[in-house]
Every structure is written in structure tokens, then in C-alpha cells.
Design a protein around this nucleic acid. Structure first.
Lengths: 224, 224
DNA sequence: TCCTTTTGGTACCGATTTGACACCGTGCGG
DNA sequence: CCGCACGGTGTCAAATCGGTACCAAAAGGA
């Protein structure tokens, strides 16, 4: 279970890191607000710990922006007696807050509680190489950050291929999983067309060989 | 989400009433301690705000009696420096206290925090970006302050979309959740019409792109 | 009741997506 | 050398999809 920690205080960050790691979480660290948003998009954590005071973008702004795209649990870290900040944070959709200083024990308890409340709304981002696919958003993101618009069938094909990365999928398997039913089995024409259109969108870099490898006489596989 | 406010000070009560209503809560008012107990039994609120000084039964006594029958969150309202009262209130099972005078923002934050601790769903008001939705009133409030009235179906659609912010909801999912059951599944016509009407009301700023993003071939998602 | 609001439904337009054809080059076996 | 199977490409028509306008039925309030 991944947790994104956004805090510019190196020392505090280390404490958080240690406590969370010891509790069995994977920690991803951001040192400022911009980086936090970036890492969120990349890593799709299950929970976010946000410090209020941060360079570039402060915690409130990060919170606001995260809330426009995700309902991930957000816990704010704040200094004592900052009522005003806390109120704003709740208004912007934060789930909880912890005042510094706090005990690691308390932190873990809050984190677990927030995760429990959020149910199992874990994001299932699929990453292969520098291609990331978000099923719940129907979106594909490249390492650089560019997104590609895919049609429903293109998306399903890519999804299937990425779920089975490295493995060769026979044409029949692919046809069945993409189109869903028997009628088209045995017909390679449709798959040919679809693979072509998908390659045009996905193979951004014309130098490198296609991400979708053809295995002659069998089918296709994604990446090597 | 209902909140019982027990306070004999008419002016203060109005402030409380307004602040809570604006935050999306339903307010039930009691003018004295007896009435508070009575209304509690009748309306079963999710939280109780209790003034210390009240006719018939004072706040402490009401608190004590409520605790014999319910674990509802209780927040006491007290004048400044009434240490003794505060200690007694906690002993009798109060969850939090607020000293008068207080800001509406602070009040809301405390109320939400108490509700959250109690395990109830945080707030009935749903905020995404600068759009806030009030379930009970079938109304949305924008950052600027303008409100828009929604019809029941429009409201349900927006509610579902906001609850799943950032995620793409398929047309079938939406149809099922808005209309309730199968009869209409597979029919996009109704949804088209509803989305259009909702957009007309919600997309106040004609410059910006619609808050309701259409994901071609799949469905819609709510973004700010 | 009458009038207003809300909802269901039809028709049409333009854009996108998809299915389907014919054709091309390559590699292989006879 | 020829024919053939296979995968890739160009192209295009048909189907689908989303948006809009408009209207009629249904529901709700005064």
C-alpha cells in the first residue's frame, strides 16, 4: 500500500518515512507541492500526507487540485493552533489532520483509520515501462506526461496486452477479450486494423521498435 | 445530516443555524434542555450542540442524560475561561467544546471533526473544486456564492459523478444509479438529455470547458 | 382544477469509430 | 521461379456516438 508524503522538512520527512515503512507501507516522498502532484499522477498512492507549508505550491493548493481528480484520502500536517488552516483544509476536502508534533503511533492510527474509511478504493494503475494505463480514468499516460486519447476498442486491446506484459497473446485470445464474443473468432482482419491504429497512437517514438511486438504465426505481445 | 442545536440565546442560535445550514446540515433547534431531550428522541440527529446555560435543564444535565441513551457526538458551547465547566463536560461524556465567541468556520470544522471521529460519513456537503453539493436541498453552491437548484434526477446524476470524481462512469453505470434499475439500461437517450440539462445549469462559466467531461465511447467524469 | 416544472422521447447533424475491402512486400517450400 | 500464407497499409463506407432542438406526457403545486 503506497503512501505519498509531501513535506519539505527533511528531518520530519525521515521520521514519517521510518514510521510508515515500519508499519508496512511503501513511502513515496515529494519535497514540494509541484512534485507532489507529479508523483501522485505517476504513482497513484492509496493515501496522501500533506504538509501545509511547502515551496512552489502549499498544501492547501495541492489538496484542492488533488480533489479535482481523485478521492484519495488526504491527511494534512499542521502546526498547533492553526484553526484557520484546518478549516480551509476540510473545506477543500481533506479527510483528517494531525498537528505537529505528533507521535508515530498516532500517525499510523490516523493513516489506518483514513484508509479504512476510504474502503478499498485503491487505484489500479497499470505500469509497463514508461506507459501507464488508468482503467478507472480510461486514460493512458506516458513517462513524459503526455496523454493519448484511445477509442474504447484500442483501450481494451492495450489493457489486455499490458495485463499480460511479456507474454504472447494469440490472435484468438485477443479477439475474444477485446470484442467479447465468439462471432469474430478466426477473423484476423479486424485485429490487424485495430493493432495498426493502436500502434499509430502508442508508438510515439518512431526510432524505437513498436511497443507491440508481432510474434509471427501466433499473435502479439507488449514490450520486451 | 441532522444537527440538534440547543441554545436559549436567540441571536447566537441564528448564527449557528445559518453557519450550519450553509455547510449543508439540517438544523433542529431547541430553546431549553427539556425540549432538547424531546427533540433528540424525535429526530435522532447525528450530532448535538449544547449550550451550558439553558432554562429547565442545563447543558451538563442534558449531556448526562443523552449519554445514558446514545453515543451521539456532543459539542458543548461555553464562555471563555470556564475551565471547571469544561472538565465536568468531558467527565460526562462530551466530545468537544467551543468557547464563545467563535467563528462559524471554526464551528464547522469542529462539527465535521466530531462527526468524522464518530465514524459517520464526514459531511453531507460534497465539495469538488469550487462546486459544493447539498444533498438535502438539491442545490449546488459555487465558489462565488451563486446557487443553482437541481431537479431530482439532475441532482442524482451530479451526486454520483461527484462521489466518483475523476473516475469515468460508464453510461450504464450512470443510468443504473440515476434511474435505479434495469428498464432503461442500454438506452443512452435519456442520459443524453439529462446531461445536457445538467450542464446548462452547472457550467455557469461559458469560457471554461464543462465540468462534466465526456469520455468518448465510455461515459462521463466530473472534473474541476 | 389549472399552470408550471420535470421527464421521456423523437429527429437530426456532424464527428468519430469501426468493419471491410483490395493491395503490397516478405519469407518459405516446392 | 512460382505460388502462397502472413502481416502491414491505404482507403472508404457504414455504423455508432454525442450534442442539440423540440415537443408531448407526466408529475407536482397552488
Amino acid at each position: 500500500m503506497k503512501i505519498l508524503v509531501a513535506d519539505d522538512d527533511r528531518e520530519l520527512g525521515e521520521i514519517l518515512n521510518l514510521a510508515l515503512t515500519r508499519a508496512g507501507f511503501d513511502v513515496v516522498r515529494a519535497m514540494d507541492g509541484e512534485q507532489a502532484l507529479e508523483l501522485f499522477a505517476q504513482t497513484q498512492p492509496s493515501l496522501v500526507l500533506l504538509d501545509f507549508a511547502m515551496p512552489k505550491l502549499d498544501g492547501l493548493e495541492v489538496c484542492r487540485q488533488l480533489r479535482t481528480q481523485s478521492s484519495v484520502p488526504i491527511i494534512m500536517l499542521t502546526v498547533h493552533n492553526a484553526e484557520e488552516e484546518i478549516v480551509r483544509a476540510f473545506e477543500l476536502g481533506a479527510d483528517d489532520y494531525i498537528t505537529k508534533p505528533f507521535s508515530p503511533k498516532q500517525l499510523i492510527a490516523r493513516v489506518k483509520a483514513a484508509l479504512r474509511r476510504s474502503g478499498a478504493s485503491v487505484s489500479s494503475a497499470l505500469t509497463v515501462g514508461d506507459v501507464r494505463l488508468f482503467p478507472e480514468r480510461h486514460e493512458v499516460l506516458f513517462g513524459g506526461g503526455e496523454t493519448v486519447r484511445l477509442t474504447p476498442l484500442e483501450f481494451r486491446l492495450l489493457h489486455v496486452l499490458m495485463l499480460n506484459r511479456g507474454q504472447v497473446m494469440s490472435t484468438d485470445q485477443l479477439v475474444e477479450q477485446v470484442w467479447g464474443h465468439e462471432e469474430h473468432i478466426g477473423d484476423r482482419t479486424l485485429l490487424k486494423g485495430l493493432v495498426r491504429r493502436l500502434r499509430q497512437k502508442v508508438d510515439v517514438d518512431p526510432d524505437r521498435s513498436s511497443l507491440i511486438k508481432t510474434v509471427a504465426g501466433v499473435g502479439y505481445s507488449f514490450m520486451a
